[in-house]
Design a protein around this nucleic acid. Structure first.
Lengths: 257, 257
DNA sequence: CCAAAAGTGTTGTAAGTACACCCATGC
DNA sequence: GCATGGGTGTACTTACAACACTTTTGG
């Protein structure tokens, strides 16, 4: 059986090349249609969803591993990535019991031993440009797609909590440093950016104050173009000034090691 | 040889009962004599210092393990503990090369295999009441004592960076939630509290504004006592109202899993 | 009685919030 | 021409920063 052989190969690869006891979970945020989205995986043969994850190779930095896993799921390598918490409870089953969860995973016994063992998991969240993403399932997943943040189902493990904490961290971060570089297309309008902020924060903002604040950061360039084709007055297009944006981030984040 | 036997026992215990590839490092802050202190360990047979650390038992939650390790080094169980970052670079040697570091550790070959392997390490910082601490070395340490935050020597591994990041996190935390419950004795004066804040932040604060802000949090009770014995006007004593303090923390920290 | 620390209120300033009118475009 | 959304500036409010005099105590 093709599947079984591949599974064996994977498990052996896992045992030889990856650190035991540690994994990563990824909360990948995208923005589309005025909605904040999260990328989820559906396990083969079930209706149950969970966050994409990954493991760390022996000779690989933790952060490098996170970037690699992100690339594997999204096809993107330009993105904003941030560690937000490390989850280390022995029991990480939440919505379903351990037995239910293992049944749902539907793995043969020799694989279960590997997958049911206890991991400490480092949580990362990423901000990516929705349009650039090609959601790609991994070996165990039947499907990989975006979910609206307000319609996330009950997930396997403690993954609902992870999303909640990632979002909370993201919101706080928004208050002390600019965000958007990796969530919006290259050129965008001020209303686009505002909608992004409103979506993340879950509340409306004043147009004029918002613009004042954003321009105040000094990280935006207004282009001489306007966005045409809309049904109304054509808004200006803006672009992030990459150097200034990076600088603003660096001022805040001391290091991300 | 007693040492060698004990070492063998420890290594075997480590292999059987603790998670591989994951460890913890602890930045334990105390406050004394108007100075912020950090608890460091000195390795046997060397002059080199490093942060205390710990490992996680198979059936033990990450946070429980951190509390346990803290108790082992300080004797305290009542304290403020906060995860601040997870360090996962393959190369975590910084001030000294890998070879230098291994030499300094001065361990026999069979132990080196265990200790030189690569770990992902979860960083915690703790705030403890200085007077209540009994600094206790572990098996590998010759000495365990407080160091003034401004006089930390070059440490083994990336531990200087860890202290820097822990302090940065602590300072930021100070700006959006009250701290002090586990750093001060039960009863303390407003100048005591202010000195604590000034020490952590590394800058002087205005007495009147400080008092206004602290009382504004609504987490302090002024007692009818004053602190006598000082050479000048006797200051009032205050106490944290535990329920209100806990509530203020809970409002900010969603969960600490 | 003097030096040193603690108790206490008010004023200024800066950042953030609220708010309204004119303009361009597609239908 | 009208409905819809975008461009723009000012007044208000609120949180924070600056600041000085009186009181107590030990020496």
């Amino acid at each position: 059986m093709e599947y079984k052989k591949e599974l064996e190969r994977l498990i052996s690869d896992l045992k030889t090349n990856y650190l035991p006891s540690v994994s990563m979970d990824l909360v990948i945020f995208g923005f589309h249609d005025g909605q904040l989205k999260v990328l989820l995986l559906r396990w083969k043969e079930t209706d149950d969803w969970c966050l994409p994850g990954g493991r760390i190779r022996h000779e690989e930095n933790l952060e490098t591993a996170a970037y690699r896993s992100l690339r594997e799921r999204t096809g993107l390598s330009e993105l904003f990535l941030q560690q937000f918490h490390t989850f280390g409870d022995v029991i990480r089953y939440k919505n379903y019991s351990r037995e239910e969860t293992l049944t749902k995973l539907g793995l043969p016994d020799e694989a279960l031993k590997e997958f049911a063992s206890r991991d400490v998991s480092v949580g990362y969240y990423a901000l990516v440009e929705f349009a650039g993403v090609t959601p790609t399932p991994d070996f165990f997943a039947a499907e990989c797609r975006w979910w609206d943040i307000n319609q996330i189902p009950l997930l396997l493990f403690d993954h609902n909590d992870m999303i909640t904490l990632a979002l909370k961290t993201l919101r706080r971060q928004l208050s002390y440093q600019p965000i958007g570089y990796n969530l919006l297309p290259d050129k965008f309008t001020m209303p686009d950016l505002q909608q992004l902020y409103e979506t993340i924060l879950g509340q409306p903002l004043d147009r004029r104050n918002f613009q004042k604040r954003m321009l105040g950061y000094g990280i935006l360039e207004r282009l001489d173009e306007r966005k045409t084709g809309g049904a109304h007055k054509a808004p200006y297009l803006y672009r992030f000034s990459k150097e200034k944006y990076e600088k603003a981030l660096a001022d805040e984040i001391l290091f991300v090691g």
